[in-house]
Amino acid sequence: MSVVIVDTSCANLSSVKFAIERLGVNPVISADASVIAAAERVILPGVGTAKAAMRNLQQLDLVTTLRQLQQPVLGICLGMQLLTESSEEGNVDCLGVIPTRTIAMQTTDPQQQGQPLLYPLPHMGWNTIEVNPANPLLKNLRDPAYCYFVHSFAVATDRYTLATTRYGNTSFASMIGHGNFFGAQFHPERSGKVGATILKNFMELTDADTRA
């Protein structure tokens, strides 16, 4: 299995690499369009801001390559948000391969200004994802499936949602998918056995799973 982790020159590249290695696969970290296009699996990691990450992808001349990928692609955290059409974080156009949008999380009640904030942001820590058996990335998982999150922006739930997570008085899409493109808002590389199972499922996706 050839796995490429797109070198977005962001911080969590080695964590993702180590997590794939723990599954017995040696991934390649690359920003080379031909290497990325030829891989059987592509992982798009990301931490930082959407605006900076998109600027990096443009400077690396990878936007078109990433948009045209046919093999299974997994965006992680900011990498997932980059798969959507746009992000409110810097009001930036993203890759647009999953027709949904990334918006700022809202955990305060606008009617309750001045009240102590019950739900801090960033949304940081272990939260549950609703296990939907129809999601091929969630095979072999049982409730409650806890994953590690760190983010202040999120994708609203819609028809591209593969898993939902609740925080405070809102729910958001903790996993999304469209065709061969998949995204996880949490960090599977830091989500214990649950995360390892999700990464393993990603490696084992079949053609039928990516046609949906």
């Binding site: 080695s14 590690y148 390892a196």
Partner: peptide, 11 residues
């Protein structure tokens, strides 16, 4: 730091 990152799967 790298050895820890390699072996543990929590943040």
């Amino acid at each position: 730091v790298e050895r820890i990152a390699r072996h543990i799967d929590i943040p």
